[in-house]
Amino acid sequence: MKNFLKIKNLSISVDDKCIIKDLNLNINKGEVHALMGPNGCGKSTLSNVLAGKEGYDITNGKISFSGENLLKFSPNERANKGIFLAFQYPVEIPGVTNINFIKTALESNRQYNGLDPLKPGDFLKLIKEKAELLGISDEYLKRQLNVGFSGGEKKRNEALQLMMLEPSLAILDETDSGLDVDAFKIVADAVNSTRGKKNSMLIITHYQRLLERIQPDIVHVFINGSIIESGGPELAEEIDKNGYERFNNA
């Protein structure tokens, strides 16, 4: 599908300060886009707005997703329509067990889309399969959601949710941060395994290393709330070599 996600002339402010300025971005179904930019350029603002977080003032522009006005939907409706945000800093929620949370999320998603809930045995089999790919033990699934998890464990858990929910648009907000070399490979390969013709990805990152394992179709350079240049994977290589200086001066 063309223009699966279409952002047109989007401007966003927080406390009267303009964070995103006149942003245009089109992602077709099956495409992987990378959004690269320095700290504080508005990358996380964009991902939060796509997921529906409150507290952002959309001063101009439109976002359509699968042909519908995304902005009219609540965060849970967006999620159930297929948008998944892998958080840069996943929250810790005491008392809520990881496996119960994922089961509830999957049931909500299936119910919204008119599907019967998975049978308990099928759910257990599925989550164990996915968890094994990520090196996640049964014990870890029974733990409280992200409570006491290391940075790497939290990112693995985000990847597990991504694999279980199978969204049509995954937004990965600095999923590579906080991962050691081995965990990085595991998470990147797990994310890569979800790639297909029916789903798209928007990878938000500072660095090229994630894009070496999850090859993007298009790379965007995002500076001060705007895309100032788009190109192929070679753009990421250039940033890795020379930084953002050329773009800052553009």
């Binding site: 609540s74 958080f87 509830t104 949710q161 929910l165």
Partner: peptide, 13 residues
């Protein structure tokens, strides 16, 4: 918001 972003509505969250 985290729970909403996984598809749980306000009541479920």
């Amino acid at each position: 918001f985290y729970l909403n972003s996984r598809g749980l509505n306000k009541f479920e969250a």
